[in-house]
Simulated assay, not measured.
Amino acid sequence: MFLAILASNIRLVSHWSESRGVYDDICYLRQAHLFQRFGWHGLDTSLAHETDGYLAGKLRSIDFPNWNEPTRAPCHTEIADGSKWVMTPPPGTGFVLALFPEGFQVIPLYALANVMIGGFALYGLWRAREAGSLTLAALFGALSITFMINPAKASYSMAPTMVVCALAGLVTARLFVDEGRRRLMMIAAVGILLGLSASFRIANVILSAGYFLFFGLSFLIWRTRETFVAGLTLGLAFLVGLLPVFAANLVNSGHPLVSAYGGQDTAAPHLDPAVLRAYLRDTQFPLMVIACAWTALLWRFANHAGVRQLTLLVGANLALNLAFFATHPVFTPYYIIPILMLSLWTLLFAAVFTRGPVQGFDRAPPGRPRPPEMLSRV
């Protein structure tokens, strides 16, 4: 079933066009063009580098009004001192697009992302050992591969974001299920992945909110060296993951902590009934209900202390992210998909890692004694 959905996705992707009329697509492709043209200097997205007519050509191909006026181009803004115009999106999506030949970038990016998500789904299915976890792995695996077309096609930034969310979910689950000497290494891996996710979409930085809340409260409650080092490791690794964003900010805005988004007018956060109604009617709402219910059920029936702690982290992260987007002034069909996929992948891997026969224990038929060596392992 997974392979059939994956094959169908790749067949659909193979017919996509890179000139579909979506304004943000032009910016991601322009960032990729800058990387291919200038290497790492492509982080500088100033319109002063627009000497080969690439942006104008892309805008003209989608019949954009004023295509020959660079300062009217979408997702470009003038920085605070007025010295140059730069792009607002972070560099990550453009970077991964730049890995493929110009003119044939979107199709291989989505094909590769689909294959990687299919791999995560198959891994979850392979690790499942009981009927319940097997069913969860099958249903969610099919759903996750399906989502790689819709809503992931809505923005090129979603393809790499979905892969990072799956990988972060896997590492997070392993972190809480297998507590051992590799704990700090896994915390660092989670921090780097969460930081890197912001290179694809700035809003992905909110994915880390629940992690920092959990590790911060853990230190405030227990006040041990272990909880302090864990929180410090997460924070430092997160900063390492954010380095591409800091570098792009420094080059384009003149300060690593000042994003090009700062030059745009944004409405103050507020609850908009129209936005809430849009979410209620969208596919994201049932997914949100599933994620919340799954978190509550796993917390209630988990037979592993680490998994109970994990559900607290997932619940906090869901609450903080949903609160952020509920007060966001704009609705899109994919805004809360990253937090939902991160949460659902985490819950799935937690379930399949902790369900099944005890390691080293083979169930003997009723009435048949177990060998001494098996009893010693138990």
Rank of each mutant, 00 (worst) to 15 (best):
L134Y: 09
A48F: 08
T93K: 04
D24Y: 09
A48V: 04
S19I: 00
V96L: 08
I79C: 10
N66S: 07
D52N: 12
F120Y: 11
G21L: 09
F64I: 01
E18G: 00
L143K: 10
R37S: 02
A7E: 15
R72A: 00
R129N: 07
P108H: 09
Q31K: 14
G42P: 10
P151V: 07
Q31G: 09
P70F: 02
I145G: 15
G57K: 07
I117N: 13
V13G: 00
L112Y: 06
S83T: 08
H41V: 04
P74S: 07
N66H: 11
Q105C: 01
A137D: 02
L136S: 15
A80C: 01
A131I: 04
E102Y: 03
Y23L: 06
F64Q: 08
D81A: 08
T77E: 15
P89H: 12
T88Q: 08
G53P: 03
Q31I: 15
A80E: 06
W40Q: 03
A111G: 03
S61E: 04
L134S: 14
W16H: 02
L12C: 11
D52L: 12
R30L: 06
A121N: 04
F35A: 14
E69S: 09
T71K: 08
S46H: 02
G94W: 12
K153P: 01
R127K: 10
P89Q: 11
E18K: 00
G82W: 01
I149M: 15
A113C: 14
P151K: 10
G103F: 07
P91G: 03
W85E: 01
L112I: 12
Y54W: 06
A98S: 13
I117P: 11
Q105W: 05
L47G: 09
P151W: 13
P70H: 01
L136F: 15
L112T: 08
T51M: 04
G124A: 11
N68L: 12
T51E: 14
S61T: 00
F35V: 14
P151N: 13
H15S: 01
T88W: 13
H15I: 01
P90Q: 07
S133L: 04
E130D: 12
G39H: 02
A142I: 12
F35R: 13
Y23N: 08
P101K: 09
S8L: 13
P108V: 10
A48P: 03
A121Q: 07
L143I: 14
F140R: 06
T45G: 01
G132D: 13
V13H: 03
I117H: 10
L12K: 10
A138H: 05
S83A: 08
A80G: 05
Y54R: 04
H33S: 00
I149W: 13
E50Q: 12
Y28D: 14
L134M: 12
A121S: 10
F147C: 09
R11K: 09
T51C: 03
P90D: 04
E130S: 14
H49W: 12
A137L: 02
A128L: 03
L43Y: 01
P65M: 09
F120N: 06
G141F: 09
D63A: 03
H76G: 11
A128W: 03
A121I: 04
V86G: 13
T93Q: 05
F140C: 08
W16P: 00
N114A: 15
P90W: 05
S14W: 14
F38C: 06
A138M: 08
F140I: 10
L59E: 14
A32R: 00
S14Q: 12
A48K: 08
F104C: 07
E69G: 02
N9T: 14
G103D: 06
F147N: 11
E78A: 08
